[in-house]
């Protein structure tokens, strides 16, 4: 019971802190609001064991070594870039080019590939509902991704750029990041092209700025308090496109991988803290 109570207490304190704000908005109040939100975040971070995302990482670890799928094999032969079964530090070097698939893959796309090619899962089944609904736990692939990412905890992002397709993925990601379409005419840059901006009270990182990208990209997969589950990076991007009034972004698509490649490139040298806790 300790964990939910700790979260509840943190949330209540934050709500009180926000409610105590003066009712007359001003520049000074903007600053106060930011501080109150930051206190809330800090309270969530202060007790690392209050992070429910660790339960999903544990589930992911068990799923990784369990024999599963039509082939009834574990994922221990899955090569995440450092050789079959090498998990430690692998996430820090993704996305990268994989010769067996002849494409650049981020962690989630690579896990999708291993679950299909090694375990024999049907790809279209895995693509059907890849992300949890609100309140539902992260799916199995996402739980595995959470565990794998946690095994690069403390490492710094160093995705390779030696292969032309790796450079190309970053460039494609930038073009996609800046590309406007849909009924709201939004691109990623609509919200993430300037420092210090907010939607409602939610702060928006200026993701084209390496300093800001390094602070947040390594947090994903992260436990998200507002939806009470772990959200992977591809789920986060899917959710952004939902907000942008675009159709459903396909899991493992080239758009997903290229955007991750672009963001991780901006965050190069940033520390991996996944699974972090987000609002």
């Amino acid at each position: 019971m300790r964990r939910p109570l700790a979260l509840l207490a943190a949330g209540t304190l934050a709500a009180l802190a926000l409610a105590a704000l003066p009712q007359t908005p001003s520049r000074a109040q903007d600053g106060e609001t930011e501080k109150a939100i930051e206190r809330y975040r800090q309270m969530l971070k202060d007790d690392p064991w209050s992070n429910p995302g660790l339960l999903d990482a544990d589930r992911g670890e068990a799923l990784w070594s369990r024999r599963r799928g039509p082939q009834n094999v574990s994922l221990e032969a899955c090569d995440l870039g450092r050789g079959p079964g090498q998990v430690e530090g692998a996430f820090a070097e993704l996305p990268r080019y994989f010769a067996d698939a002849d494409q650049v893959m981020d962690l989630e796309t690579r896990l999708l590939w291993c679950m299909e090619k090694l375990q024999g899962f049907n790809r279209s089944d895995l693509l059907k509902r890849p992300h949890p609904a609100g309140g539902q736990p992260v799916k199995e692939l996402g739980a595995i991704a959470t565990w794998v990412a946690s095994k690069s905890g403390g490492a710094k992002f160093a995705a390779p750029l030696g292969h032309p397709k790796e450079k190309d993925a970053v460039a494609l990601g930038q073009a996609l990041f800046e590309r406007r379409s849909g009924p709201f005419d939004f691109s990623c840059t609509t919200c993430h092209a300037e420092p210090g901006k907010r939607i409602r009270l939610q702060g928006l990182p200026h993701l084209a700025n390496p300093d800001e990208a390094r602070k947040v990209i390594g947090e994903w997969p992260a436990y998200r308090v507002s939806s009470t589950h772990v959200m992977t990076m591809q789920h986060r991007l899917y959710d952004c496109y939902w907000q942008m009034r675009m159709p459903e972004l396909e899991f493992g698509s080239e758009v997903s991988v290229a955007l991750v490649a672009y963001l991780v490139n901006k965050a190069a040298g940033g520390e991996i803290t996944a699974p972090a806790i987000k609002r």
Binding site: D168, A171, L172, Q174, A175, L176, R179, S181, M246, P247, E248, L249, E250, S253, E254, V255, S256, A258
Partner: peptide, 15 residues
């Protein structure tokens, strides 16, 4: 240095 036509094709495939 990405061909705009390719960007559009990538978007079409991803959605």
């Amino acid at each position: 240095a990405v061909d705009p036509a390719r960007v559009e094709a990538t978007v079409k495939a991803a959605f």
